[in-house]
């Protein structure tokens, strides 16, 4: 029996079926699983099937090129995302190179984060955290390979607890092919730094550093289309903003950029 809210048209039918499937997939994890973590940029949120990064799911983020090792931009992207959520975060580190004042600068207050230095036990510690419902998110820094089995475990644990699980993929090699192997994550993001415009656009000669500029690549998205956006990096509250020029560009160029 379909809901009476939508007339039994073809689109309505499909929407109902999708909702049903989503409910079954969530395994009755309750309303929490329906919540999302918004990027704050409507264009990006709308491109995601859940209207944001679905909580109760596993998401991946990685850097690109020389930033593959430290994934600084990806870290700031995720920190900004978490800054807009409420509640404690478990951040599982491989080694202690994360700098809490830097996270605070992206709006993620340090007293919300519990750090766990796990060495090689990152995945196990993440799973431990995902079994605990008091957290809003579990972030893990995984160096090198993340197998399908391991990511599936994390995804299932996240689904059950309704917790946003994030894996920051890092690797010693630039653009390590290991990072593009398939995993069970719902979305995979690549955050690449782009040259930023001068701090004062009307006076380009003035020294200074404006807002960072990133290219956000949604490489993989379950139930959605991959996409690519150019955004201004996380501000003091972790907020992103679509770069103004993109909106003004002709449609053809924007299409080329998305492709």
């Amino acid at each position: 029996m379909f809901s009476t809210q939508h007339p039994p048209t073809r689109t309505g039918l499909i929407r109902d079926l999708r909702e049903k499937i989503a409910r079954i997939e969530r395994g009755g994890a309750g309303a929490e699983a329906g919540l999302v973590a918004c990027t704050g940029v409507p264009a990006i949120d709308h491109a995601l099937p859940a209207g944001g990064l679905a909580r109760g799911a596993l998401h991946e983020a990685m850097g690109a090129g020389p930033d593959t090792e430290h994934a600084a931009a990806a870290t700031l992207f995720m920190a900004g995302l978490l800054a807009r959520l409420d509640g404690p975060v478990l951040w599982v580190l491989r080694q202690a190179d994360l700098f809490a004042p830097g996270l605070a600068a992206a709006g993620l207050s340090p007293d919300r984060i519990i750090f766990a230095e796990a060495g090689r036990d990152v995945l196990a510690a993440m799973e431990e955290g995902l079994r605990h419902r008091g957290l809003v998110s579990v972030v893990g820094e995984v160096v090198g390979r993340l197998t399908l089995v391991a990511s599936r475990r994390l995804q299932l644990a996240a689904e059950q607890a309704g917790i946003l699980a994030v894996v920051l993929r890092r690797s010693q090699g630039f653009d390590d092919p290991v990072l593009s192997e398939p995993t069970a994550a719902v979305t995979r993001w690549r955050v690449t730094a782009l040259p930023s415009p001068p701090a004062l656009p009307h006076a380009p000669a003035t020294p200074g550093l404006g807002r960072a500029r990133w290219r956000l690549d949604l490489l993989r998205c379950r139930g959605g289309e991959p996409g690519s956006w150019i955004v201004e990096g996380a501000d003091a509250t972790g907020g992103l903003a679509l770069v103004a020029e993109i909106r003004d560009r002709p449609a053809a160029e924007a299409q080329r950029l998305l492709a």
Binding site: L90, D111, R112, I114, A116, E128, G129, H132, G134, V136
Partner: peptide, 28 residues
Amino acid sequence: MPDTGRDAAQQDLGPLVDRLANRLGAAS
């Protein structure tokens, strides 16, 4: 935890910290 959200506020993090500390060592 301070500043916890509505649904999370009720949850005590002590058990989680215990298990992580048992696994990784209290200093970690």
